[in-house]
Design a protein around this nucleic acid. Structure first.
Lengths: 120, 120, 120, 120
DNA sequence: GTGGTCTAGACCACC
DNA sequence: GTGGTCTAGACCACT
């Protein structure tokens, strides 16, 4: 598990994205216990407070639940997780479409360009 | 021409994007004179300092040239403009692909979703 | 008897409240024997340590008495129980009034709102 | 303006409550600019980070909007503010009713007790 | 040991 | 000057 962060994007945001990504991808399962704040902070090489914020944000999104003194757990509400997935997809897609349009490209041109790029 | 800005993205960046978009789209032509900083600032409803930075940044990118006492002009170097276009396209595409992967989606799913959305 | 706990409020507090509530309501009588710590912990689905603390706290409040080897009993001091009742009422009322004022509501508005709500 | 905080309740929460209270009460108006984070932190006698968190939370609730480099402003969305008011009222009332019931009081008894208490 | 709060101070991006 | 991010470290409440 490697952890390098992009500049110009908050670390805590990137961590949130990574975790939600793991969720969407199924690498983390509903009901599963996440590492403790301190543990995960060390693993990711960030300050404990930063990770604390990540967990708090996740809870605010209804993705995790914290049981005091026991740890942080992924919600078992599968419906909520499904919704999350769709929200992320919509945001990603709509932002992309908006940017394409703003910069004057066509979808066809972008599609053509992307074919053969990245880890396809 | 309407000007509302997204939160959490620098206004000056959005302005740069808009202008480069106009360029790519052909709404602004090589050699054309841009409005004065003050004029454009008023039109866009932003601080003159902000617009000043936009122009400075554009010049730094080799997109515009300043002729003292006359104003700011789009470069006539078509080669440069073409390069700009490709750079923007690459950035857009690569960011999109990176995000898709990070969040655990497939290209097919995103394509399917986007078909029928936006101002297609 | 159902036992689900609210988040952001200590479980042991909620248990204390529930027991004092039973007392005030008369569901538990002076002199009555309470279940053993372990028994009650299982019933409530909490850690034995947590329930231990509940009993300790109750004893500290003068509500229960421990007879070694026999178990925990509700005090027979009716005066004490009456006092407890009044304390709880005062705390509840004063907190409510404080919050109303802090948030800028009037008593009339709250009363009007509450009429017809809950298990009236 | 005095600022003393209750123990056993997060300072940042109490600050949020106070500000929303001011909003509900009309002491702060839609569109109004709030003091800067640092300014308000000094005034309230808390750390700037604590106040930062307060502002961030308020923005998350849709109550404020921040204009970068300019400051934090109360939303002009009156609908949103009205909704906020109703939410707070509902939460306050429902919590109160729940507690009354849990502790075995009747509404009549509580009403009788409260009459004549507080800054009526 | 777990999450949560608070402080102090540094540094950055934006206007 | 304004908000935002991050670190470091202390302390508390809960299980």
């Amino acid at each position: 598990m490697s952890f390098d962060f992009l500049p110009d994007k908050p670390i805590y945001q990137q961590l949130i994205d990574r975790i939600t990504g793991d969720l969407i991808r199924g690498a983390i399962r509903p009901g599963e216990k996440l590492p403790s704040v301190r543990e995960y902070a060390v693993e990711a090489g960030v300050n404990a407070n930063t990770m604390q914020r990540v967990y708090k944000e996740l809870e605010g999104m209804g993705i995790t639940e914290t049981k005091r003194g026991q740890g942080t757990f992924v919600t078992e509400d599968e419906e909520r997780l499904h919704l999350l997935r769709e929200e992320m997809k919509a945001r990603l897609a709509d932002d992309f479409l908006r940017d394409i349009e703003a910069l004057g490209f066509t979808r066809e041109e972008m599609t053509a360009y992307m074919t053969g790029r990245g880890t396809e």
